[in-house]
Every structure is written in structure tokens, then in C-alpha cells.
Write a protein that binds this DNA or RNA. Structure first.
Lengths: 224, 224
DNA sequence: TTCGGAAACCTTTTCGAAATTTCTGCGTAA
DNA sequence: TTACGCAGAAATTTCGAAAAGGTTTCCGAA
């Protein structure tokens, strides 16, 4: 298991280990529920025991890692039940963020949204090769732009957390599912409804949109 | 600043320091935004540096402590803006948890709710001396009982987090406000609406109930 | 006086070994 | 066969000192 990581560019060693470990967890390189032995990580990153422990402690903040007194750390477990609960709350959070954004959104919000949607639409209309390269980022930017006017940090933090775990489930259970077949129409519809400031329609659309993505993950989770 | 703490009863020293520090933070014994020096805490609890650091790292999970690379830890800051955002999301979360509970609630939920409401009503009808002693716990138990059937761990975790910070703001900004004058009528109305499974009414009542509490805190925060 | 820089000081961060606890495998007794 | 217990191994947790980085103070030059 000899692989060297680059921990440069971070202010402290803890941050470097934290970032790399987080990345491994989100990429699915570390299996859910597997043990994260301090001694093992210590040699992998070539740092002290407490540096590793502190990085792991910080990952506990995002529920990516769990710990049980005197029994070490583990990667967060995954389950169909857990994922379904995640989807439910994610829908709720996104819906609320969108409703707030529609209420508070100013010209700047609209302008940013138009731009983000334009970029995404271009990519979704492009050939598969290009899509694969940029879609993920453009998709995320678009969704971020839709809610960018909500202006509530607590809501934002919850949204980030749910997005993080969503990505992890995607990677673990449906890594092939890069871009859902019909997301282009979804995004157009959401964009139009937002420009109309039609909250009810936006709410209905985003729920459907998310649950469509979710079903692919559920299928992947069930298969195992 | 010589005060001895009891760290017994915890599996690890980290957990003990974590629990005591958390308590101090919630009691307002540690001022918001004040620095949390490792060296100072080290001597206070008579433990090693990394034990303190890890306890602080775990408090970061709950946003009770912040850290900036190479510049140590600080108690979370408070502000009127932050509190208002907290209140908004707390209302949203509680409303959703209640709606889910109403949908999923079974006989057990109803029975527990009746019992919790009964206990709370007794205390709210009692003489001030007794109220002061038990109201806080009974109030919390009642609200927990109202949402106990929602069955979504993500929602539950968010709810706990918001409740934690709510308590902190209460303690910091309005420590005298033990029991709002008219919470008795509020709780009765919420209870009745729940038994009727009237979601819309419950939603309206809980928002009003929370914002009533919140205004006392806002006044306290503004005064400073 | 004001500014720049350097030294002294303080704090955070990092490490590795020691202490503590849990896990594992094996032998013994019921 | 199953249960129990007890070493030995393995892993976690804890400590305190040393290294690294930030902050303050003070001195001299402009």
C-alpha cells in the first residue's frame, strides 16, 4: 500500500492529511465502515500520531468518520435507509434554499444564474467526450447559483454537508452515472421557473430532479 | 482561575475534556470569540496538549469552536445576524420534523406525546419555585416528543445542532428568561393541533412559538 | 515623530515513545 | 462441545518536549 501523497500547499500538516483523507473517502478509495488505523495512516503520510488523530477528528465533523472510545476510527457506513433519509432532507433543504433565493434574489443573482445556466446548457448540448470532462462542475455551479441568494449560513452549511454525502453515495453506488440522460430538460425547466419566480413550480421540479438522480444510487446500493 | 473539574465517568480523557468544555461553552462561562489557548487548558485539566487539541477539534464539529491555521482555537462568535439565521433554519427544521411526525406517528407516539404534555402542563401550572426547577427539562422533553416519530437521522442531527446553539444564545443573551409567560397556552395549542393531525396549524403555531422565544434573545443581543 | 526590521517572546503544531485498553488465540475445565 | 480465562499481540490513547510559526516590542534611521 505504498503510495505517496502530496501534502504541500496547506498551512498545517493536519489540514493536508484532512484534505487528502477526505478526498479518498469521497472518491470511494476507502471502503465504507472500514477501520482507519492511526498507525497505518501515520506511516502512509509520514506524520505523528496526534496529527492523524486530529485530522480524523475533523472528519467526524462532517460525519465522514466515526469513532468509538478506545476502539478507534472508522469510515462512515452507508446503507439504503441512510441514503433515503439523506435524500429526503436534501430535498427539503434545497427547496427552502430555492424559496428564499426567489424571495431575496436581486439582479446580480439573476445575472449569475443566467450565466451559469448558459454554461451548463452548452455543455449538456455538447458531444459526450466534452460533457464527461466538464459536466460535473457546471452542474454543481448551476445548482449553487440557483440558491446563491438565500443568504443563510446555517442553511448553506447544511446544504454543503448533504451535497458532500450525496457525492459520496454517487461515487460508491453509481460511479458510471455521470450525467442523467434527461437532466438537460430538467435544468431548463428549473431555470425557466426560477426566472418566473414561480416558487411552487420550482419546488416540485427540484424534488423530482433530485429523486430521479437518487433512484440510480438506490439501484446501485440494492445490488450489493 | 483555579478550578478543578471532574473528568471521571468518561471512557477517554478526550471525551471528558470535550464534555466539560462543551458545558462551559453552553453555560456562557467562556465568552464568545474568546481564545482557547491549548497551554491554558492543558494545565486546567491536567492533560497533554494533543488531548486538548482533539477535544477542541471535536467541538468544531458542532460549530462551537473555530480554528484558523497556526492561530489556534476560539469560542464560536455570536451576532444578531447569525442568531436570526439560526432561528429561520430552526423553524424550518422543526416544522418539517413535525410534519413528518404527524404523517408517520403511531399510537406509541401519541401516547408518549400525551404523557410529555401532561408532565409539562403540570409544571407550567405549578408555583414559580417548582417551575424554575423542572420547566427547562420538561419543555425540551415535550418538544422532543412532538417530533419523535419523524425517523430521519439527518433531520434529527440538524435539529440537535440547532437546539444546542439556541440554548447557547439563550444563556448568553437572556439568562433570566427561564420560561416565557405565555408558553402554557402555546404548548396546549400545539398539543391540540397535533392530536388533530392538523399539519398546517401546527406549522403556524410552532413558528410563532419559536419566534416569540427568539425575540427575547434578540433584545438581549441588541443591548450589548 | 514615524517607519522598518530584527530580536525576544509566546502560542500553536508536531512528533514519537510510553501507558492503557482491546483483541486474539490457545489451553483448560465443565 | 462449549465456556472461560489468561497471556501475548495489536491498537488506541496520552503525554511532554521540541520544532515551527506568529506576535510584540524595541531600537535606530529617515
Amino acid at each position: 500500500m505504498a503510495y505517496e501523497r502530496n501534502l504541500d500547499g496547506y498551512k498545517t500538516a493536519i489540514e493536508g492529511v484532512y484534505a487528502d483523507l477526505r478526498d479518498s473517502l469521497l472518491r470511494g478509495e476507502i471502503a465504507p465502515a472500514s477501520r482507519l488505523r492511526v498507525e497505518e495512516l501515520r506511516t502512509r503520510y509520514d506524520v505523528g500520531a496526534s496529527t492523524v488523530r486530529e485530522a480524523l477528528s475533523r472528519l467526524m465533523a462532517e460525519n465522514l468518520v466515526t469513532s468509538e472510545g478506545q476502539r478507534g476510527f472508522r469510515a462512515a457506513h452507508v446503507s439504503l435507509t441512510d441514503f433515503r433519509e439523506l435524500v429526503d432532507t436534501r430535498c427539503m433543504i434545497e427547496e427552502q434554499a430555492l424559496r428564499q433565493s426567489i424571495i431575496k434574489g436581486d439582479d446580480q443573482w439573476e445575472a449569475d444564474l443566467v450565466a451559469a445556466h448558459h454554461r451548463l446548457a452548452r455543455i449538456e448540448a455538447a458531444v459526450p467526450a466534452e460533457r464527461a470532462l466538464h459536466w460535473e462542475q457546471a452542474n454543481r455551479d448551476f445548482h449553487d447559483a440557483t440558491v446563491s441568494a438565500h443568504g443563510n449560513r446555517w442553511l448553506g452549511a447544511m446544504r454543503d454537508l448533504h451535497q458532500t454525502h450525496w457525492v459520496r453515495y454517487m461515487t460508491i453506488a453509481a460511479p458510471w452515472r455521470r450525467m442523467p440522460i434527461d437532466s438537460r430538460a430538467d435544468h431548463q425547466a428549473i431555470f425557466d421557473a426560477l426566472m418566473d419566480r414561480n416558487s411552487e413550480l420550482v419546488a416540485a421540479l427540484i424534488n423530482r430532479h433530485f429523486r430521479k438522480h437518487a433512484s440510480a444510487v438506490e439501484a446501485g446500493l440494492t445490488r450489493k
